[in-house]
């Protein structure tokens, strides 16, 4: 693939960008998150807002499994995990399933933080230590201004999976057609980017999308949209997508870093 056709590809992408504005993502549901706070590994489940719209139990478990297997190399052997469930109701069976998943990744469920009495009882019955925090003390949402720590996933993101994160997302693996990554920071794909990538989802146009092989279904940065070129190039080099006054542009990574 010559530099010329890259220019063509990016020019056409740029001209196709704009018309539709990206829908706001802020009100979308949060996802399962691992965070380290004060040296403790926290597993934070999204708060239950509207049960009908919220993340169902099986989706939640699936997200947890994926985060666990995609972060495998970084978990410390038998590290204790603090499960922060806020106002979500969990029964003994569900707590057991979470503990089992953690155990399969060599992590240990140690303490459950909840604001619900029923969950606290279930957790205590199952033999975990319980902390019945008030919802406000849980500091559920990350501070609005600061981004969360980058989310590093070593996995193939497969069709039907959507990864959302209030920070930068690094995927070591492919982003397959039919999948999506929505990040408030940058999106870095160390592999083939064939799905949808959305960087700066809270509106930051400075954010970038980087991939070893750019064959996106769609790229989004802040409120800008670009479709991938209709005929994908046959050879690839690492590329960077960023916002210019003319819309989203794609350039070779080697050229980008010279700017």
């Amino acid at each position: 693939m010559s530099a010329d056709s890259f220019t063509t590809a990016s020019a056409s992408t740029a001209s196709e960008s704009i018309p539709e504005m990206v829908p706001a993502v802020s009100q979308q549901n949060e996802q399962v998150q691992f965070r380290t706070e004060a040296g403790q590994l926290l597993l934070v489940l999204p708060a239950e807002t509207d049960p009908a719209a919220g993340l169902g139990w099986s989706d939640l478990l699936q997200q947890l499994q994926q985060r666990l297997s995609a972060g495998k190399r970084f978990w410390q052997f038998q590290a204790p995990v603090h499960l922060v469930v806020a106002n979500r109701l969990l029964d003994g069976r569900q707590l057991g399933a979470i503990a089992e998943s953690l155990a399969a990744a060599q992590l240990q469920l140690k303490r459950v933080h909840t604001s619900r009495r029923q969950t606290a009882v279930a957790a205590a019955t199952a033999g975990y230590s319980v902390e019945q925090d008030s919802p406000s003390a849980l500091n559920q949402a990350t501070a609005a201004s600061a981004l969360a720590d980058p989310l590093y996933l070593q996995t193939t993101v497969r069709s039907g999976v959507e990864v959302r994160h209030p920070g930068t997302v690094v995927i070591v693996g492919d982003l397959n057609p039919g999948s999506a990554v929505v990040a408030d920071g940058d999106v870095v794909v160390w592999g083939r980017l064939r799905g949808i990538a959305h960087a700066g989802a809270k509106g930051n146009r400075q954010c970038r999308i980087m991939a070893l092989q750019m064959e996106p279904t769609q790229l989004r940065i802040a409120d800008q949209v670009a479709r991938g070129p209709a005929t994908p190039p046959t050879q690839f080099q690492a590329e960077v997508a960023y916002v210019t006054p003319g819309g989203i542009q794609i350039v070779q990574a080697t050229d980008f870093s010279k700017n």
Binding site: Q62, Q65, Q66, S69, R158, G160, P177, G178
Partner: peptide, 15 residues
């Protein structure tokens, strides 16, 4: 293939 990919993801999640 798209559906198979989804299924592979679900199988992974179910270990």
């Amino acid at each position: 293939v798209r559906d198979a990919d989804r299924v592979v993801g679900l199988l992974e999640a179910q270990r």
